[in-house]
Design a protein around this nucleic acid. Structure first.
Lengths: 211, 211
DNA sequence: TAGATTGTTAATCGATTAACAATC
DNA sequence: TAGATTGTTAATCGATTAACAATC
């Protein structure tokens, strides 16, 4: 196994994957790094460097076979599997994620929502039930849950993570506006929407900074 | 005006802002870059470098005044103002964003949701009305809207952006799972949730890649 | 004053881009 | 074969870290 691939590269992989899917939709089956660079906005050099972290998928004089590269990227991203998923916190955001069909299509299957609020517990949202957060450890083990999405308020995020990890969860998608601390074998992807919005706000005001 | 600050620095600013708010909550009024580095997980050197892009906010032998630094960061991030905001697309995600109180608290005021679906138009969600997306240009001008959030499906994102920009919008927060193209005076912050989830999926499978 | 800690310059590290031999 | 385009090495660029004089 070769040297660890940098996060900068990894964060570009989903974008390659998406643009290749678009090409397939348009029935384009062959592409050079130069052509791809014009569509996706990275340099051709970067594209070739990025891909070569994982293997030589192209062919000199020809370029890349779109379908083959798409399939390779699917494998690299782990999208050739499916993942049982639960959502902690059945508020607006939890519901929105539960109802987004795109994730299911990519193999992320939301099995249940969990909440601490007695008024929510037992409710059905489309075909999903809201279960008692008390019972989550048992559920994770019995239903073979691999990914948990944290949509709780900020102050309940860490304790929720701890409980999930104790039950064996190895992947957490955290939407609570706080950083959570986990052991190194647990992977966390943080989505901090406030931080994202603040970056937009920064950009809108950049010119006005009196430096 | 000094040299443009890099995106790497800018994306760390909201995190400083958040951790300083936590310190104020805990009634801690003074902090050195070293102490902050232990809490936030960046090096002390990086913290000093980052902040010095915007001014010398510290004091030798003392450190930083938490409240002062927090206020300076608020100004840098444009959080000392408020922004009239609209949401394009009144689906699950649009509603979730509309209902999240945190944004309002930071000065981002959602004034209305817009949708193309006749069944949605006219509905009230809490205190917000769903308006006809046809009327958005007029609304933007009359109500002085500065920021628009795109929560439409992928295939309607670009045309929506074009319409918003024609009406004078300068800031777009894009949740549609596609990149939108805008003139250089318009700022876009992309939030691609699928890409984020795929990165998590990658990390969960990293060990299994047969390289 | 002595100690602490900044602001800032210099050194290092890593990521991106350029170049080109290999080869389809 | 000739042309095209990769895979990969080398060069450049930018970001992070280290070091330390300035100074509170």
């Amino acid at each position: 196994m070769s040297k660890k691939v940098s996060m900068a590269v990894i964060r570009r992989l989903p974008k390659y994957h998406r643009y290749l899917a678009d090409l397939l939709d348009k029935e384009i089956y062959r592409i050079s790094s130069k052509e791809l660079s014009e569509i996706i906005g990275f340099t051709a050099s970067q594209i070739r460097q990025d891909l070569n972290n994982f293997g030589g998928f192209g062919q000199q004089g020809y370029g890349y076979n779109v379908e083959e590269l798409y399939n390779e990227l699917s494998k690299i991203l782990g999208l050739d599997k499916s993942y049982n998923t639960i959502i902690m916190g059945a508020g607006n955001l939890g519901q929105a994620i539960a109802n987004y069909g795109g994730f299911r299509k990519s193999g992320f299957k939301v099995k249940a929502l969990f909440d601490v609020n007695p008024r929510m517990i037992g409710l059905k949202m489309r075909d999903l039930e809201v279960l008692d957060a008390e019972d989550v450890e048992k559920y994770i083990k019995e239903e073979d849950i691999e990914i948990a999405v944290i949509c709780t308020p900020k102050d309940r995020a860490q304790e929720t993570a701890d409980k999930l990890i104790a039950a064996g969860i190895k992947g957490i998608w955290n939407f609570a506006p706080t950083d959570i601390t986990v052991p190194s074998d647990v992977k966390v992807e943080e989505v901090n929407l406030s931080e994202s919005l603040y970056v937009l706000s920064y950009m809108l005001n950049e010119g006005n900074l009196n430096k």
